[in-house]
Amino acid sequence: MKPSKIQTPGAQKSNEAPAEVTRRSFLNILWAVLGLAALAEFLWLTVSFLRPAKPGSAESETDTVVPAGALTAFAPGTVTAFQKGEFYLVRLEDGGFLALSCKCTHLGCTVPWVEKEKKFLCPCHASAFDITGNVITSPAARPLDTYTVTVENKIVKVDTGRRFKRSRFDSGQPVYPPKE
């Protein structure tokens, strides 16, 4: 502390015994704490203002479930693009359904399905994925993300509300229509 020319009783005391809490130093600490609390409040306010709407809120809840079509419309071994939900509905050779996000997992470009080569080919950085979404060629590091598929009354539906990341394709992921 700088020695001040005007010697107030409080200052005198704090010079002799710095550990002692004077009224002045107590009030200073109080102000500092209150100021920090106010700052924290404003920060919290700003952050919560800027946070995007939560997935569970009313706005995003409405029609995230896209009815893709009748079960019979999708032949095994085909890929159907859905512009609206931005996903591919894949029917594997064994009849299982997969809804794949059309965003490349590398940097987010839209990957078109190339029927001739039976591959998803990213135009941006040449990543390639097979029909299950697995990576054939890097730079993409993980398979295409998936959406939940449900089959109700022979209608295939895809919930585009939540996208799932996965590290590789496994047999538990495709959804199979109930046997008749």
């Binding site: 931005e86 839209t110 135009p123 941006c124």
Partner: peptide
Amino acid sequence: NPGLSPNPT
């Protein structure tokens, strides 16, 4: 056009 990435990007 969000559905069409140009090549190259």
